[in-house]
């Protein structure tokens, strides 16, 4: 079994939002919506400023509140721990939207709930997700945590990293290298 995850190097990310555009194009995300987004944290006071830029998305958590609260099991763990929504099982009750501490989900104009899929259709073909593939600074690494020799396993062994709100108990699988 694989366990897919993503590591994003905050020291390399310049916040160009290519990942956002690539995702919208690859996944035909409706206009006005996004499955990933760029967050810029600025610390300090002018002129002593420092910045952390993160490309954020669904964290494909190990203990996903969205999967837990779904009344129909439309939200489920697919292969490699990727959290997916089966469109024709989703009733659009929005429990998963309110359960997500990362606000990663939204109602697709067609009615079902939509979010990042880690581009599972590409991953199955052995490719990287669209956002990772286009990143001009190569700050994003996608891979299998169960494979000790994968690039992501190596980088998480050698670098400091954080996840977003680990205190929410969700065990997120998008890691930010510091």
């Amino acid at each position: 079994m694989a366990r897919y995850a993503m590591a994003i190097d905050t020291k390399r990310c310049v916040g160009c939002a290519d990942c956002v555009v690539a995702c919208q194009t690859e996944n035909n995300v409706p206009i006005g919506y996004c499955r990933d987004w760029i967050v810029q944290d600025t610390y300090g006071e002018y002129p002593n400023l420092s910045m952390e830029i993160r490309s954020e998305r669904c964290n494909h958590c190990d203990d996903s509140p969205c999967v837990r609260c779904c009344p129909t099991s439309a939200s489920h763990y697919a292969e490699g721990g990727i959290v997916l929504v089966t469109h024709d099982e989703c009733i659009g009750c929005k429990a998963c939207i309110t359960s997500c501490p990362y606000d990663a989900r939204y109602v697709h104009p067609e009615g079902y709930i939509d979010k990042c899929t880690f581009c599972i259709h590409r991953v199955k073909e052995g490719e990287d997700p669209a956002c990772v593939a286009v990143c001009p600074t190569h700050c994003m690494i996608f891979g299998d945590l169960d494979d000790k020799n994968s690039e992501i396993s190596k980088v998480l062994r050698s670098r400091k990293y954080k996840t977003l709100i680990p205190e929410a108990g969700t065990k997120p699988h998008v890691f930010y290298l510091l």
Partner: peptide, 20 residues
């Protein structure tokens, strides 16, 4: 500390305040 979503996330019903 100031946080901004620079790519402009404005998913209907989610941003700026959740209204599901």
């Amino acid at each position: 500390k100031e946080t901004v979503i620079t790519s402009g996330r404005m998913n209907p019903g989610i941003d700026p305040v959740l209204h599901a």
